[in-house]
Amino acid sequence: MKKIGFFLGCNIPFNRPDVEYSARYLLNELGYEIVELEGATCCPAFGTMPSLDLVGWAAASAWNLTIAEEKGVDIVTGCGSCYGSLNEARHHMEKHPEVKEQVNKILSKVGKEYKGTVKVWNFINFLYEDVGLEKLKSKIKHNLNGLKCAVQTGCHNLWPSKAYPTNEDNTFFPTRLREICEAMGGVAPHYSTITDCCGMGALRSTASEKSLNLFKKKLDVIKEEIDPDITVMGCSSCLLQFDAGQALLVEQKKLNYKIPALHIVQLAAIAMGADPEKATVLASIPLNGVITKIKGGN
C-alpha cells in the first residue's frame, strides 16, 4: 500500500474540516495509507514568517518538511498557500545552501535535520500524476453525469513555477483540474478568467470590500461565459472565497445568483461514494441540486 503524508495546514482542519474528511475518504478509496504528520504546524502563511525574513520562513517550513522526511513519505496538501510556502521554502534552501545551513543550525537545537528529500504535492497534481486519470476513473461510483464545472486551480498551485516539482504545460491555460473533472464524468470548459485571483488571503484581510469586488468580477465572468452547475477548487483559500465569500455577497445583496462551490477532494470523494452530507457539511451555498445530479448518474 502506497503511503502519503497528509499536510493539513490551518484553514482545512479549522475552517473547513469537511474538506479534511473528504480528503481522508478519497485517499483511502484510492488505496493510499495516510501517514499522520504529528506536530505539523502552519506552512507558514505568507503574511507571517515569510514577511519577517527568509531564514525564519525556511526554518518554520523545514519543521514541517522534516516530519515527513523522518517518516519517509511525500506530502500532499489541499491548500494552495501551503503548497506555495512549503515549496518556495524548499526551493530557496535548494538554491541557497547557506540558508539551508542556517536552518539546520536552528533545527539542531531540537534534534532535527532537514535533508531536502521530501516532495510536496497539491491534490491536482497528485490526482493527475501519482494516481492518474485512468485509476481515478476506475474508482468512480457515481459518475458526475455531465455536471458542468467551472474550475479554479488557484494562483499558488501555478506560480512561481520554478519552485514547483511539477506543473501545467501552460500555467496561463491550466487544464489538469478540468481533465480531472471530465475524467469523473463532468464537463469542464475553459473560461477567460480561469487564472484570475479569487481575492482571498492578504487582500481579503487588508481590503475586504475590494477583495470581494474582485471576486465578484471573476464570478460574473464565470456565470456569463459558462453558467456552471458548480465551481471546483484546487485550493482551500479559494474555497473560502467561492463559498463563504459568495454567501457574504449574496447577503449584502451584491449578487443575485448562487453557484455552489466544492474543493476537488470533496467532489471526488462524493463521486467515490462518500456521504455528501459529511463531505460538504460546512458549505454556505446550498448544494442540493448538485448532489441530486451526481446521484442520478452511475
Binding site: 470548459p189 473560461y191 478568467t193
Partner: peptide, 12 residues
C-alpha cells in the same frame, strides 16, 4: 500582461 480567449471568440 495577458491575452485570454473568450468563449465568443474574442481575445481579452
Amino acid at each position: 500582461s495577458s491575452v485570454d480567449v473568450k468563449p465568443n471568440g474574442k481575445l481579452r
